[in-house]
């Protein structure tokens, strides 16, 4: 049997908002450890991996590993009807008929909404996601997630919006990270310097650089990743010319959401 409860719908609402525009289906893996979610976009360019440890839930009972593919668009629609302070219950029975039940209960007026979701096939997930060695990454940038989102928005508004393939180049050089994009009639560069942690201890921008690195990514994807900002105050971007870049948001003490994307390759 699987039975989970969260007394505030916000966390799950935010998770769905952070993934549902880019990924149409996801694999949800429930085990004694917690919930592991994985999704790959249809063009196999981006992968998202989420971990919510059992401690993230107010009640967590899972006596048998259970893996289910779910349609994220349908789930996002259902969760938009949930209020932030609704109590969520997630249930699947032992003799489960390939469905999972999500219940939203309003603590104020006692109204209960029940959604049953059928399992669906997923795009080849779950996948084995190795922990890539730290030494393989040429640079790591940590910054406030709101700042990263703002940068993505600025670049998107300047970048040629008619072109789905607007490219952003992220370069790390000493104590600076530059975001560069080309618009119709010019270019735009946003420079972020490493900030002194004494000034704004809660909002540092930290840059760890082993060697200079300059990589190109699809801005459209990066923009979607930046929606992880509702889950964490900080984002860490790990850059390597040989490995997928990782955009990681730590979720309090209870997990993380990681987006993986390879840099563009010169042909």
């Amino acid at each position: 049997i699987l039975e989970l409860r969260l007394v505030q719908a916000t966390l799950f609402k935010n998770v769905l908002e952070a993934i549902s525009d880019l990924f149409s289906k996801a694999n949800f893996d429930f085990s004694g450890t917690g919930l592991e979610l994985q999704a790959m976009d249809t063009s196999h360019v981006a992968l998202v991996a989420l971990l919510l440890r059992a401690e993230a839930f107010n009640h967590y009972l899972c006596d048998r590993d259970l893996s289910m593919g779910l349609n994220l668009a349908d789930m996002a629609k259902a969760f938009r009807c949930a209020n932030n302070d609704d109590i969520i219950t997630i249930k699947a029975e032992e003799d489960w008929s390939d469905t999972v039940t999500f219940t939203f209960e309003s603590p104020e007026d006692g109204e209960i909404s029940i959604f049953d979701f059928d399992f669906v096939g997923t795009n080849g997930v779950p996948l084995e996601i190795p922990e890539f060695p730290e030494s393989e990454y040429q640079a790591k940038v940590r910054m406030p997630s709101a700042k990263f989102m703002r940068i993505c928005k600025k670049l998107s508004s300047f970048g040629d919006s008619g072109d789905r393939d607007t490219v952003v180049i992220i370069s790390v050089d000493k104590e600076c990270v530059n975001f560069f994009t080309r618009g119709k009639t010019g270019t735009s560069t946003i420079v972020c310097r490493q900030t002194q942690t004494v000034d704004k201890p809660k909002e540092p921008t930290l840059i760890e650089m082993k060697e200079q690195v300059s990589l190109a990514f699809d801005l459209r994807y990066m923009n979607s990743f930046s929606k992880g900002s509702t889950l964490s105050d900080q984002v860490t971007i790990s850059l390597s010319s040989n490995l997928p870049a990782v955009f990681e948001y730590k979720i309090a003490e209870t997990g993380y959401i990681r987006y993986y994307m390879l840099p563009r390759i010169e042909e």
């Binding site: 063009s43 196999h44 360019v45 996948l127 190795p130 699809d218 490995l243 997928p244 390879l262 563009r264």
Partner: peptide, 14 residues
């Protein structure tokens, strides 16, 4: 000209 790299070679099915 550049193209977006694909992830299959880094992540294998479980």
């Amino acid at each position: 000209k550049s193209s977006q790299g694909r992830l299959e070679s880094f992540f294998k099915p479980v």
